[in-house]
Every structure is written in C-alpha cells, then in structure tokens.
C-alpha cells in the first residue's frame, strides 16, 4: 500500500527542474529596474525622496541595486514613468560599483574570475551564515537547492561546516552580536576561499544601515567577491551570479 502511495506521489511530482537557469524569467517578479534616458518631466525628486534606503541618485538618475529593496515606491511615484521594474532576475555583480544602475543602461555582465573558476568551476561548497537576515534571504538560498533550481547539478552545494566550505555566503546587515561568530566561521575556512554578500542588508546594510545592533567591521577586512542584490534575491539571481562568476561555459 505504502509503495503505491510513494509511486503516486512520485507521479504527481513530475519533472520540475528548470532546464536553463540563465534564460528563466519568473513571471510577475519585480527584478532588474531600468531607467529611461529621456529627461524627467518635472524636477519632483519624488523617487529619491521616497526611497527607504537612499538608493537613488539624481542628475542623472541612478539606482544602487546594492541598496534597493525593490519596494517600487520610485516606480509608482514617478510622473514621467522613468523607472520601470522588469522581471529579469539577473542582477549579480563582481564589483560593488557595477551595481549602480545608470540611465539608459542595464547592468554590465559579470566578468568570470579566472583564478577562482579554475579552482571551483566544477565544484563549489558553500557555508551560509545569517547575521541579522530576516529569513527571507535564507529561505531563498535554501530554495536554490530545491527541485526547481537544483544547483547541485553544477556541483554547487550547501555544507554544514565552514571547514568544508569554499565560499561564505552572508545574509543580513551583520549584527554586533554575530561579530565573533562570523569571524570564527571565516577563520575556520581553508584557503582558497571567498565571500558572497546576498541581499541589500549584507551588501550595504540596506534598511538597517547605522541601526543600533549592526556592526559591519568584518567587511572592512574581508571584501565580497560576488554581490547578489534583492530583498530577498530570487534563487535565479543567486544562481546566475554564481554561474556567471565561476562557471561561464557550463549549461
């Protein structure tokens, strides 16, 4: 009886993996914004005034995706329709400055790291540490290993100990109470190793910049090699950033 139920469940499960993660566009997702190059009709600055994380620069308009929480206040308040969010999840960057989106341009493609992709291009073990993450980034990172996104197919896996890890994946704004634990985790990792900052909080402090419980000193000594923007980032944003950086040739 149980066997039949197992088979029935298996049939209901079907085949769920997304064949090409690079081409996938999640329907309805609020992803990469685009800023129109035509001048503003008014000088209202409402986009910058309403932005909860001061992600928007003016004259010309720019959006720092390392700060953006994708709340769409700017898009909705703009009388000129200058800012428009698309469903494109591909927003990662290997340089912090690449995350600043300019008028009329998309994001530059991630330049693969020659040294790191030689080492980790076929196998990457990651240790995730949340330091004030609200569980949204954490759930999406977990989802990157589910039956839909299935990052394991590339040899990319989460591991339980930093001693087994090649990359430390940080979420949250970095809290004072986690400072010691983050340092211990990083120091436990064998070289070569690198750091990934996931979500607006980890990249810039986001909504918690200068909050009473936040201490970002760790990032002064260790800089991220990859930035994955979002609040939270879609699993496809994370997957594409890692793949572009380390496994550019692999399907």
């Amino acid at each position: 009886m149980t066997l039949f139920k197992a088979i029935r469940t298996r049939i209901s499960q079907g085949t769920q993996y997304i064949p090409d993660l690079r081409q996938a566009r999640p329907k309805g997702f609020r992803g990469l914004p685009l800023i129109d190059a035509t001048p503003c009709e008014t000088e209202c600055h409402s986009c910058a005034d309403l932005c909860p994380t001061q992600a928007i620069g003016l004259n010309p308009v720019s959006i720092d995706l390392g700060r953006c929480v994708f709340c769409k206040e700017c898009e909705e308040s703009c009388p000129s329709g200058k800012i428009r969010f698309t469903s494109d999840p591909r927003m990662g960057a290997a340089n912090r400055s690449d995350l600043v989106l300019k008028e009329g341009f998309g994001l530059p493609a991630i330049r693969p790291s020659e040294t790191l992709s030689k080492i980790f291009g076929r196998s990457l073990k990651m240790r995730q540490v949340s330091a004030g993450g609200c569980n949204a980034c954490e759930l999406e990172l977990n989802a990157s290993a589910n039956v839909n996104f299935d990052l394991q197919r590339y040899g990319i896996e989460w591991v339980a100990s930093p001693r087994h890890a090649d990359a430390l994946v940080l979420t949250g704004p970095l809290t004072r109470n986690m400072r010691e634990a983050i340092r211990i985790a990083w120091d436990s990792m064998p070289e070569p190793r690198f750091l990934v900052a996931v979500g607006a909080c980890a990249i810039s402090g986001g909504l918690y910049e200068a909050a009473a419980g936040v201490d970002r000193d760790f990032l002064k000594s260790v800089g991220p090699s990859i930035y994955v923007p979002g609040c939270p980032p879609h699993p496809l944003t994370f997957a594409n950033a890692i793949l572009d950086f380390l496994m550019p040739g692999r399907k």
């Binding site: 309403l50 709340c71 949250g172 809290t175 909050a211």
Partner: peptide
C-alpha cells in the same frame, strides 16, 4: 544574535512609510 535594532529604527522617519522595514 539577530538583534538589529528594529524598534529604534521604526521611530525614525514618516510613520506612514514604514512598510519596507
């Protein structure tokens, strides 16, 4: 370990615009 200071942060800015936080 996760303490960020949300309650203090909520007292800054327009009370009607705290949604994202």
């Amino acid at each position: 370990y996760q303490h960020r200071g949300v309650e203090k942060k909520l007292l800054q800015g327009d009370a009607r615009r705290l949604g994202p936080l």
